[in-house]
């Protein structure tokens, strides 16, 4: 654990200026991931800027009929918010399938988006890791990669994004509002996280000093036809091997809008609009779901211990879509 200086920010501008000026400074809110990483010497900030007293803790109406969630809203408050439960139950379910009740009480909305990978090698500073120390190599490639990526990985990094909430936000096409030294901007959720490529040390497309202020949900919440299916190695309190957020709009048994986002399989929540489009205009049927699954997993690559995730993801997609469409009576599988 390194030593760092602490600053409590009283306004957004000061917080942004403080981090913009120092590449090794970090914002801190819930701390559930950053403190963890600092203890392991994975993150070694020289300064942390406490943003918990900033006025970013509200949930209110969004601009286009949606919902605007302040970056500091706690995961549990978001999951149990009556508007979220009513209009965006997919988000609520995804959040509640992640972490533990205690962690959800601490973790913030913005922080959840900033979660770093749980790759065992990333966490162990005695091992090579390009994400932690660019240029040292990737021990997971030939090592224990059960939890690792099957889609969108590079030879530099096969880590996955561990968030459940982000998978639902990807399916819901949320917008991330940030403010930075050069002003405010809105980032489409699909553009927020990035693939590892040659720079696996970067998880997101945020610029130095940019602070997430809110996440905005569009009006369309898929409250009727949705499913969040998380498959993991124990019944609770474990990261996803594969998770699927499925959301459908149906009119008389025909799909008018389809979203499928995958978690646990890539460096970011994985979506493929072309694959989703295969469903539009089709009637709800297993064969169409299978076709979407095949399309989504085109190009999937196993690395040994995670080979099974390709087939698992295929089956999970079909199950989640079936469930979203209401074609099975079963509740979400518990893992």
């Amino acid at each position: 654990m390194n030593r760092f200086a602490y600053l409590r920010a009283d306004d957004v501008g000061a917080a942004v200026r403080a981090v913009a000026a120092d590449p090794s400074a970090r914002f801190i809110a819930g701390g559930t991931n950053l403190v963890d990483l600092i203890k392991e010497n994975v993150e070694r900030p020289t300064r942390i800027v406490d943003i918990t007293r900033l006025p970013l803790g509200e949930i209110g109406p969004g601009e286009r009929g949606g919902l605007r969630i302040g970056a500091l809203v706690k995961n549990s408050d978001l999951a149990y918010h009556p508007e979220v439960e009513r209009r965006y139950p997919l988000l609520s379910r995804a959040i509640l399938s992640g972490a533990s009740a205690q962690l959800r009480n601490m973790a913030s909305t913005g922080g959840n988006l900033m979660q770093r990978t749980r790759c065992s090698y990333f966490y162990d500073t005695t091992t090579p890791c390009n994400k932690r120390e660019p240029g040292t190599g990737c021990a997971a490639l030939g090592g224990f990669n059960r939890m690792h990526a099957i889609l969108g990985a590079s030879e530099q990094c096969i880590a996955v994004n561990p968030s459940d909430m982000s998978v639902a936000l990807a399916a819901l096409e949320a917008v991330v509002h940030v403010t930075g030294p050069e002003g405010d901007r809105a980032i489409a959720f699909a553009e927020f996280h990035r693939l590892p490529g040659d720079a696996p040390q970067l998880d997101t497309n945020l610029r130095q000093g940019e602070l997430i202020t809110a996440v905005e949900l569009p009006a369309l919440g898929f409250a009727e036809h949705h499913a969040y299916l998380k498959i993991r190695d124990r019944a609770s309190y474990a990261f996803a091997l594969v998770s699927v957020a499925a959301a459908l709009e149906l009119q008389g048994g025909t799909v008018t809008e389809a979203r499928v986002a995958l978690g646990g399989v890539a460096h970011k929540p994985w979506r493929d609009r072309e694959a989703e489009a295969l469903l539009v205009g089709r009637r709800v049927a297993l064969e169409h779901f299978q076709r979407v699954a095949d399309a989504l997993l085109q190009g999937a690559v196993g690395r040994g211990a995670n080979d099974f995730k390709i087939e698992l993801a295929r089956r999970a997609i079909v199950r989640a879509l079936s469930h979203a469409a209401g074609r099975t009576s079963r509740d979400d599988a518990r893992r």
Partner: peptide, 17 residues
């Protein structure tokens, strides 16, 4: 080296199991 050397990677049963 043991690589699952923490309680997130080394799974033991939780209440729900």
């Amino acid at each position: 080296r043991f690589i699952t050397h923490n309680l997130a990677d080394y799974h033991v049963p939780v209440h729900a199991d």
